[in-house]
Amino acid sequence: MPSSASAGRSALLIIDMQVGMFNGPQKPYEGQRVLATINTLIAKAREAGAPIFAVRHTGPLGSPLEPGSALSQLLPELAVDAVTDTVFDKARPSCFAGTGLAGWLADAGVAELVIAGMKTEYCVDTTCRAAAELGFRPVLVADGHTCMDTPVLPAQAIIAHHNRTLSGPFVQLVSAADCLFVQQSA
């Protein structure tokens, strides 16, 4: 794994932007804006030659999000290219748990991981923390992640809380407009 002090290239990680979560009964906060922001990040990553990873959360067989189900698929409006980008499944909140993500990033010389997607308080939060623990430099796009209202807090407060909590100890927080993809080799 890269150390936090090492140089290295950037990659984009898009978390759980899939049909069943985005278009479910509870709509994500500012979902269309976040989707457009993520598509802008994809374009920036492509222009810089940065690898793009898109992960789908899957549930057990027989569940609405079982692997391969219509609801587990990435949003068709998402500008991910299944031929050139790496699309993979996970069954845990961390994009690293039970997947090959850490190895793929290391093999590609990635040190900095730009993170966007949903849901803020679950998979985005967990992946940010895990990336830092694994020695990557996580960059959370402050306006590139979302979630739904809960009985306890509105989504806007959840997002603001996580941006503040994660910034510094766990991630570098940037806006999509200020997000750059570094392409130095390690």
Rank of each mutant, 00 (worst) to 15 (best):
M1T: 12
S185E: 12
E112G: 00
A131C: 00
D85G: 08
F136H: 02
G24Q: 10
G168W: 07
A130D: 08
I158N: 05
Y29H: 15
D81S: 10
I158E: 02
A186T: 04
V124S: 03
S185H: 07
M1H: 08
D143Q: 01
I14P: 05
Q32D: 15
A155C: 05
V141Y: 01
N163T: 06
V171C: 09
V87L: 04
A102F: 00
T127G: 03
P51G: 07
N23M: 13
K44P: 09
M148V: 13
G100Y: 00
A116F: 05
H57L: 13
Y29C: 09
E112M: 01
G62R: 07
A50I: 12
E47F: 09
K44Y: 12
T120D: 00
H161N: 15
L140I: 04
R9N: 09
T127D: 01
V114T: 06
I15T: 08
M148C: 09
L180I: 13
D149C: 07
G117V: 02
T84W: 06
V139I: 09
C128S: 03
A43P: 09
T84C: 07
I115Q: 03
C123G: 11
E47G: 13
V174I: 06
S167G: 15
A177S: 12
G8H: 06
P151D: 09
A70D: 14
A108C: 02
W104D: 11
I38A: 03
S94W: 03
A160T: 13
A36Q: 13
Q26C: 09
R9E: 04
R33K: 15
S94Y: 02
I15A: 04
T165R: 12
T58Y: 06
Q26G: 07
A157Y: 13
G62F: 09
F136T: 02
A177M: 10
R92L: 11
S4Y: 10
Q156W: 08
I42V: 15
C147K: 04
A111K: 05
V55Y: 03
V171I: 11
G59F: 09
A177Q: 13
T127F: 00
V171S: 01
I115S: 02
C95H: 01
A5L: 14
C95M: 05
C123S: 10
M118A: 11
H162Y: 15
G62N: 07
L113P: 01
G98Q: 02
P64E: 06
T165N: 14
D85Q: 08
D143E: 05
E66F: 08
C179P: 07
M1V: 10
T150W: 05
R56C: 12
T146L: 02
F53K: 01
T58W: 04
A36G: 12
A70F: 14
I52M: 08
P60A: 15
G100M: 03
G59E: 12
V80N: 01
L13Q: 05
S69T: 11
G109A: 01
A45K: 04
Q184Y: 01
L61E: 15
I159M: 08
H57V: 10
D85H: 06
A130P: 00
P169M: 12
D107G: 04
S175R: 14
A131F: 00
L134S: 00
M148D: 04
A155P: 07
T127C: 02
A131P: 00
E77L: 08
G100S: 11
A111D: 05
G109W: 01
L153N: 11
L75F: 06
K44D: 09
E112V: 00
G49R: 10
G62D: 08
T86K: 11
Q183M: 15
V55L: 11
